[in-house]
Design a protein around this nucleic acid. Structure first.
Lengths: 185, 185
DNA sequence: GAATTAAGTCAATATGACTGACGTAAATTT
DNA sequence: AAATTTACGTCAGTCATATTGACTTAATTC
């Protein structure tokens, strides 16, 4: 066995808590900030991405590939430029990942009809199957999280997540997510 | 102006939608998966981390530094080993980041009382101030997101986020987040 | 006294991002 | 028709964050 934390589950923090609060700075009237949502979001998002990451490792893909695959599968025929806007990465970063996905037969590029400069992106049958697999994993975690929650919880969470996003991006995000629920309320 | 997308706001996806759905694979009875929460979580988390990232850039720090700073500030006197467990990174990864934070006078290491092998971690006054600044940014985004939501929404979101986390980690996470709300329900 | 634990270090590597500079083809504007 | 802009791609170099693996030192525990 090596050096590395293999089962590094969050361990019982700070067995020695005697020093807690001994920092010299605690005296300038800080309102008690609700840290818990910040930390829960950190842990929740980490686990949320973990399931797909594990599968992708087998294909020698990473999270970057997952993001591209996901949005291409959800938006068949998407332009490269649009994908850059969605992911907010540079052409060069996308280039590498996209090339690997195309080479692996996961994504397919077709010339645009009206505009022959465009390389419209589609998942192949294989790529679509992988995308669905990964989505299902994340969906299962979401379902488990929603079990036993009061009626209307899903709508509340949906609205909360949207409102966490910069308001100026709402129109574009709403176009992308195409929820069957009415997010505009 | 360079090559790079400077204001790469999510752009109006796929102006050419004629091809949508032309993939050959759509015929094996897929239940409609609720993609929207997956995508909202992606965008929400990205914006959530953006505010602190922007501030940290000025200090020549990155997100890795933020995570360390946050958990040290919240758990004064935390052991290095525990921090590794919380962050789930290797000693070597933490080492680099921690050294930079210590060199910059943001974090302080003190020898353990009972166990002199330990290097208990504390934020300095300066480090604490930075941690509070960053927390406030994230808290403000959370507050904006919660405005106008029905009564009880915060508790629902808190519970949802906890349940997104692997159940076996709940005990440790609960110890860490020390919410003033009762998350165990 | 032996084994384990806490912390750190050296070295090499991978991934995903970046900046900056160009090139080409196609479409659009003037 | 010429000039400009757009869509896409590429070459080259760099950086941040993470990894694996091997090893050391000091202190504690068995």
């Amino acid at each position: 066995m090596t050096d590395v934390n293999f089962k590094p589950a969050v361990s019982p923090v700070s067995r020695d808590r005697k020093d807690a609060g001994k920092r010299l700075a605690d005296s300038k009237g800080e309102e008690t900030l609700p840290y818990d949502l910040i930390e829960l979001l950190f842990f929740a998002y980490r686990d949320f991405t973990k399931d797909p990451d594990d599968v992708l490792t087998k294909y020698e893909f990473g999270r970057a590939h997952h993001r591209v695959l996901h949005f291409v599968d959800r938006n068949p025929g998407v332009m490269v430029t649009d994908l850059l806007g969605i992911l907010r990465i540079t052409k060069q970063s996308l280039g590498r990942v996209l090339k690997q996905l195309v080479d692996a037969g996961i994504i397919e590029q077709r010339e645009g009809h009206h505009d022959r400069r465009q390389r419209l992106l589609y998942t192949t049958e294989q790529g679509h199957a992988l995308a669905v697999d990964l989505t299902r994993l994340q969906q299962k975690r979401l379902e488990r999280a929603l079990i036993g929650m009061p009626d209307g919880s899903e709508e509340i969470i949906r609205k909360f997540l949207l409102q966490m996003i910069d308001p100026e991006d709402h129109p574009d995000v709403l176009k992308l997510v195409r929820s069957s629920y009415d997010l505009k309320d």
